[in-house]
Computed example of a mutant assay.
Amino acid sequence: MSENTADRQNPDRQMADLAEVEDAKLSSRTGRSYSQGQLVLRRFVRHVPAMISLGVLLATTLLAFTSMGLGPLPGWWPESYRHQEGLTPYNGGDMTMFGDDGILGPHPFGQDDLNRDYFARVMQSTQTSLIIALVVGVVSSVIGVVVGAMAGFYRGWVEAVLMRATDFVIIVPPIMISAILGRIVTNLPFGIFFLALMLGLVTWTSMARLVRAEVLALREREFIAAATAMGASPVRIILKHMVPNSIGVIIVNMSFAIASAVLLESALSYLGMGVQSPDVSLGMLVNQNEGAMRGRPHLFWLPAMFIVIVALCVNFIGDGLRDAFDPRRQRTGDRKPTLLKALGFMGRSRAEDRQQKAADVTASTGEGGRS
């Protein structure tokens, strides 16, 4: 195999070539050179769905944390999400948003069956779900990086033991393990953090497999051989060389782990095996108000809508990060067709031109062969 063919088949070389071409184009327009980190940031900012999702997720997070506060820090919303004596229904428990009482009113999302303010409960539930998802993402990523890096670097019996343990965790349904462990720790003080820790202990397998694959590829690189020849310890090689060069895979998979954690926690709370009263979560609200679909369906749909919003936003952000770190995944060629073009109402003339050009090329080729 020639050297040029080997370079074309080398993914790292392709990434370097793409970065050099992109940097050259930007330098010709702006007169300055861009680092790899600046190119990644530029690609992410130009990813429209990811930026919209980032804005929606930040707005949702700010609304949830500023309205209800966090710990000793109070929020700007006066109502409590817990049951209090003397609560009375207002406006029949219906939503007061955009009504006669102003934009929000005293109960913008209405009241539940116990006359508790539903806006406060939804915001507190969103805050709980976001905290659990973030902790799960961090814990699962740390465990997955450690297991994957050790398995890929040391190989031999270390890899065999760690990968068999990974396979064992994979074959057991994570919701079953999470339900058993979560039921044990949810009644402890700071139960949501222990629940997040338990969820992180069963969702690290995909990160471990991806990091192992990256480390196996990096293990044969020249700079790793040079570091080994200079006497660098395995821990230093992993922390200083392999993990930083796998940061793209780690960040992208961490974002998807956070989205999966939102859905997993909601499913556990819906089944009554996740967050327990007096704490609240979105899945618990969906479970508690499942019977309100006929009379007051907003009690069911509002927490369900926030689950979908958070999960979709994190997934779109992960897609943007993946395209930013690996531009080879981006679509090349013509732009994606619009709805009218997909239905065949536009682009007919362009298709006819292409068919005519193809016919001309075929005709010219046939004439050349006969001559």
Rank of each mutant, 00 (worst) to 15 (best):
202 V>F: 10
184 I>A: 15
330 Q>I: 09
85 E>K: 10
347 G>F: 09
156 G>H: 11
330 Q>Y: 00
229 A>T: 12
142 V>R: 12
151 A>I: 10
129 S>G: 09
115 N>G: 03
89 P>F: 13
84 Q>A: 12
37 G>P: 07
281 S>A: 11
57 L>C: 05
194 F>N: 13
352 E>G: 01
285 L>W: 02
252 V>I: 12
324 A>Q: 04
369 G>I: 11
30 T>L: 11
57 L>I: 08
186 T>S: 15
196 A>F: 13
27 S>Q: 12
148 G>E: 05
16 A>D: 11
165 A>M: 14
325 F>N: 01
205 T>Y: 09
30 T>F: 10
249 V>L: 04
52 I>Q: 01
278 P>T: 07
162 L>F: 09
51 M>I: 14
331 R>F: 01
199 L>H: 06
176 M>A: 13
206 S>R: 15
253 N>C: 07
2 S>G: 14
71 G>A: 02
330 Q>H: 03
50 A>V: 04
328 R>D: 01
106 P>Y: 06
159 E>F: 05
32 R>G: 04
30 T>Y: 11
190 F>K: 15
81 Y>M: 01
143 I>C: 06
234 P>D: 08
293 M>K: 13
223 F>C: 10
313 C>I: 02
108 P>A: 07
17 D>H: 05
267 A>L: 06
280 V>D: 00
190 F>E: 14
254 M>V: 04
217 A>Y: 06
244 P>A: 15
62 L>Y: 01
45 V>L: 14
159 E>T: 00
107 H>G: 01
